[in-house]
């Protein structure tokens, strides 16, 4: 088949109309025929003289992606998390009751959820063109940011727990960690999912805040709501968190959803 006929057929296939294809055919053919002189042999000779390719490990690539996202995540998130978590430690020490660390268990999930809520959305991300030029997919970018923010809060929570256990001999590390870790995972996943779905970080953070206050208040008992803080609810919360996280990654990894328009 002649190149012209092949081009005509492609246009007809794509446009679904012979008339429209014919209207565009001269222009598209001109586009194909734009003259150009190339230099392949010279380039091939250059390549042949190159030294061996440096090997880049998988871990190094991962590190580079994370490092790039550290610059994009809002700086306030790190500072706010650190301050609030420190406050949680002090309040827990001040209001210490044996085998209880209410302030840390209350604040750690909230801090993490607020941070995670702000890893996605038009107010957080650069313009569409820059985003689309990234060498990795939006899904990997989101996962990297989630890892950074959640990981940072996790590290802070662990540091706070270790500090509390060292100061208050009545506390045990594992029960203390579990008391905030499971709710933190759930609330962060909820904030992530809401942030991606609504593209409104503030709305996402506020919703998590309201839910968290509700769970901790007497209203939950009044409305006969299930006790999300109970030990038996933990497996359910973790499964829910995994589900929410996967939905958010699936939705947020879609380029069209990310840029907020259908191309």
């Amino acid at each position: 088949m002649k190149p012209e006929d092949r081009l005509r057929r492609l246009l007809e296939e794509d446009l679904g109309s012979t008339e429209e294809a014919e209207a565009l055919f001269p222009l598209i053919q001109q586009l194909r025929d734009v003259p150009l002189v190339t230099t392949a042999p010279r380039l091939a000779a250059l390549v042949a003289e190159m030294p061996s390719a440096p090997q880049q490990s998988y871990w190094r690539q991962l590190w580079l992606i994370l490092k790039a996202q550290i610059r994009v995540v809002r700086r306030e998130i790190w500072l706010a998390s650190l301050l609030i978590m420190t406050l949680g430690v002090f309040v827990t020490i001040a209001q210490y009751q044996a085998s209880s660390a209410q302030a840390l268990a209350l604040l750690a999930p909230l801090v993490s959820a607020a941070g995670v809520a702000f890893i996605y959305g038009p107010v957080v991300d650069p313009p569409m063109e820059i985003l689309l030029s990234m060498p990795v997919s939006p899904r990997v970018v989101l996962l990297a940011r989630l890892t950074l923010v959640y990981g940072f809060n996790l590290a802070l929570g662990l540091a706070a727990s270790v500090t509390l256990v060292m100061i208050q001999s009545g506390l045990s590390l594992w029960p203390l960690v579990v008391a905030w870790l499971v709710p933190m995972t759930f609330l962060s996943a909820l904030a992530f999912c809401l942030g991606v779905f609504t593209r409104d970080p503030m709305m996402s953070a506020l919703t998590c805040f309201v839910l968290w206050v509700f769970v901790h208040s007497d209203m939950a008992a009044f409305f006969n709501a299930p006790d999300l803080l109970s030990v038996s609810a933990r497996p359910f919360l973790l499964m829910l968190a995994a589900g929410l996280g996967m939905v958010a990654l699936w939705l947020g990894g879609d380029e069209d959803w990310w840029v907020g328009e259908l191309a």
Partner: peptide, 22 residues
């Protein structure tokens, strides 16, 4: 095998430059 890279360059260079040029 560096020669394979040379072959890939020779095979794709013209078409790729035409793409980027446009």
């Amino acid at each position: 095998q560096q020669q394979d890279l040379v072959n890939l360059v020779e095979r794709h260079h013209d078409a790729l430059i035409g793409y980027v040029y446009r």
